[in-house]
Deep mutational scan, measured.
Amino acid sequence: AEKTGIVNVSSSLNVREGASTSSKVIGSLSGNTKVTIVGEEGAFYKIEYKGSHGYVAKEYIKDIKDE
């Protein structure tokens, strides 16, 4: 049951290796980017990222929809 969301930041949002603010940053997404959410862990969504997965803070994702 995948969902999509939109990155809701003015600059960019860090994509992390794990569901923690201390996890390594593996990339970033600019505002209004559409993401595919494959799961959630605590305050983070697990998303599809560059052929693999990454984690982003839930508070910066809006317009969550079921695909």
Rank of each mutant, 00 (worst) to 15 (best):
A1M: 09
E2T: 13
E2F: 06
E2H: 09
K3Q: 11
K3A: 09
K3R: 13
K3H: 14
G5H: 04
G5P: 02
G5A: 04
I6C: 05
V7Y: 02
V7I: 13
V7W: 01
V7T: 09
V7F: 02
V7K: 01
V7D: 01
N8D: 14
N8M: 10
N8G: 12
N8Q: 15
N8S: 11
N8E: 09
V9M: 09
V9C: 06
V9I: 10
S10G: 11
S10W: 08
S11H: 09
S11D: 12
S11M: 15
S12M: 09
S12A: 09
S12C: 05
L13D: 02
L13C: 04
L13A: 06
L13W: 02
N14D: 08
N14F: 08
N14G: 14
N14C: 06
N14E: 13
V15W: 02
V15I: 12
R16Y: 11
R16E: 01
R16C: 05
R16L: 14
R16K: 14
E17W: 06
E17I: 11
G18D: 09
G18Q: 15
G18S: 12
A19Y: 05
A19K: 03
A19E: 03
A19H: 06
S20G: 08
S20R: 09
S20V: 08
S20F: 11
T21E: 13
T21R: 08
T21M: 14
T21Y: 14
T21L: 08
S22K: 11
S22M: 15
S22A: 13
S22E: 08
S22W: 07
S22P: 04
S23V: 03
S23L: 03
S23H: 14
K24T: 11
K24F: 09
K24V: 14
K24P: 14
K24H: 14
K24S: 06
V25E: 05
V25A: 06
V25T: 13
V25S: 10
I26W: 03
I26Q: 03
I26H: 02
I26L: 15
I26Y: 03
G27H: 02
G27V: 03
G27D: 03
S28Y: 08
S28G: 07
L29H: 02
L29S: 01
L29D: 00
L29E: 01
L29N: 00
L29R: 01
S30Y: 07
S30T: 12
S30L: 15
S30A: 09
G31M: 10
G31I: 05
N32D: 15
N32T: 08
N32L: 12
N32P: 05
T33W: 06
K34P: 14
K34A: 10
K34S: 05
K34C: 05
K34Q: 11
V35H: 01
V35Q: 01
V35F: 02
V35C: 04
V35S: 00
V35Y: 02
T36H: 14
T36I: 13
T36Q: 15
I37F: 01
I37A: 01
I37M: 03
V38R: 07
V38F: 07
V38E: 04
V38G: 02
V38Y: 11
G39E: 07
G39A: 07
G39I: 03
G39H: 04
G39V: 03
E40V: 06
E40A: 10
E40I: 13
E40D: 14
E41D: 14
E41S: 09
E41G: 04
E41R: 09
E41W: 08
E41Q: 10
G42R: 06
G42I: 03
G42E: 07
G42Y: 09
G42K: 06
A43R: 15
A43M: 15
A43D: 11
F44L: 03
F44N: 03
F44P: 00
Y45I: 04
Y45A: 02
Y45E: 00
Y45D: 01
Y45G: 00
Y45T: 01
K46F: 07
K46I: 13
K46V: 10
I47K: 00
I47C: 02
I47M: 02
I47R: 00
E48V: 13
Y49S: 01
Y49W: 11
Y49H: 08
Y49N: 02
Y49P: 00
Y49L: 03
K50Q: 13
K50D: 09
K50S: 12
K50Y: 12
G51P: 09
G51C: 05
G51L: 06
G51K: 10
G51E: 08
G51S: 07
G51H: 10
S52D: 06
S52P: 01
S52V: 12
S52E: 13
H53D: 07
H53K: 08
H53W: 15
H53P: 06
G54V: 04
G54P: 01
Y55G: 00
Y55C: 00
Y55L: 01
V56L: 05
V56K: 00
V56Y: 00
V56C: 04
V56F: 01
V56E: 00
K58I: 10
K58S: 07
K58T: 05
K58M: 12
K58W: 03
K58C: 04
E59V: 09
E59L: 07
E59T: 13
E59H: 15
Y60N: 08
Y60E: 04
Y60F: 10
Y60L: 12
I61M: 06
I61K: 01
K62E: 14
K62V: 10
K62H: 09
K62P: 02
K62L: 10
K62M: 10
K62Y: 08
D63G: 09
D63V: 14
D63P: 15
D63R: 10
I64G: 12
I64Y: 15
K65P: 09
K65E: 10
K65I: 12
K65S: 12
K65V: 13
D66T: 13
D66I: 12
E67G: 12
E67R: 01
E67M: 07
